[in-house]
């Protein structure tokens, strides 16, 4: 039971990384990235592939950060010519291409079976100490990511992103290069998700193509909508809530007679319905984005 609680908390912290990264894109800048899972995938597979070749886990994390940042910059650059909904579809297509490559290039990625037995930082630490170390690491990473995201959102960089989300023409008239800003925010947000992907892979020591399905992106959007899109605190809170729903649904089948094979779909259904309900009744989420006060007397 304690192990399970630690596991849930650790995964929630990892998901907070994804949510904070997507919030910088979708919440702060208004870029609906339907292929967000690609950044997670780049981080996860960088760690997996580096581990497969006997590299140190830190190298895997580093590769993931660099590659995802480049991928983010490329995707952000595409936003130059695309309307918002076209961009969303294109990002989805990019993520699906990535997944297809992962499934088919078995020599590199392990194919449909994925890569297992990946050694992480606490592989030698076993039992409760190991679980606790993981939890501390993930919570520290999530806290760091929160600090970074919150600082970025509050300073001029994020202010301009928020302006171009609401009033792109005004932003352009003030000398802000919209394409460059979109490219930069993606290049900065992507590594946050990639670190999440790496840590996740090292933690469960496995990565497979089924973790790159569009459903993962959808889960992160659900976290943002529940928590309050545009609000970093909301993103973290949403990650926690979704993780709790997921954990709670495990106990659902102790109460209701749900066959094992449909347990995962019931869980998805619950999450989907929660999201739908929020969209219909409270689209601004539990913590709505607030005005940012600026300290005048510094």
């Amino acid at each position: 039971m304690l192990d399970f609680a630690l596991y849930v908390a650790t995964i929630a912290a990892v998901y907070a990384l994804f949510a904070l990264s997507l919030n910088l894109q979708a919440g702060v800048t208004g870029l609906l990235n339907f292929g967000h899972v690609a950044f997670f995938g780049v981080g996860a597979y960088s760690s997996g592939i580096v581990a497969l070749h006997g590299g140190h886990w830190l190298l895997g994390v580093l590769v993931g950060v660099v590659v995802s940042s480049l991928l983010g910059a490329v995707i952000g650059r595409l936003g130059r010519t695309l309307a918002a909904d076209y961009w969303a579809i294109v990002t989805l297509a990019v993520a699906e291409c990535l997944r297809l490559v992962v499934v088919n290039e078995g020599d590199l990625t392990g194919g449909p079976q994925g890569i297992s037995g990946i050694a992480g930082p606490f592989s030698s630490v076993s039992g409760l100490a190991g679980s606790l170390s993981w939890l501390v690491l993930c919570v520290v990473l999530a806290a760091l990511a929160y600090l970074v995201a919150e600082t970025l959102t509050g300073m001029q960089f994020g202010r301009v992103l928020r302006l171009l989300r609401e009033e792109p023409m005004l932003a352009a008239s003030l000398g802000h290069n919209i394409t460059a800003e979109k490219t930069r925010v993606l290049a900065v947000a992507a590594p946050i998700a990639a670190v999440g992907g790496s840590v996740y892979t090292l933690y469960i020591s496995y990565i497979g193509p089924n973790q790159l399905l569009p459903i993962e992106t959808f889960l992160v959007f659900t976290m943002l909508i529940i928590g309050g899109i545009g609000n970093n605190r909301g993103a973290v809170f949403g990650a926690l809530v979704i993780q709790l729903i997921y954990a709670g649904s495990r106990f659902l089948k102790d109460i209701f007679p749900i066959p094992d094979q449909s347990a995962s779909s019931v869980r998805l259904l619950i999450v989907g319905l929660v999201l739908t309900a929020f969209l219909m009744t409270r689209p601004e989420g539990l913590f709505a984005e607030k005005l940012r006060r600026i300290d005048v007397h510094q």
């Binding site: 779909s265 019931v266 259904l269 989907g272 739908t276 969209l279 689209p283």
Partner: peptide, 28 residues
């Protein structure tokens, strides 16, 4: 209709949510 009245971004996310709900329902 309701989601579009908030914003087209909300409707877009809503359509994503709906696809998942439909898939999950069929599977269940």
């Amino acid at each position: 209709r309701r989601l579009s009245s908030f914003s087209s971004a909300t409707a877009l996310i809503g359509s994503l949510a709906l696809s998942i709900v439909i898939t999950a329902s069929i599977q269940a």
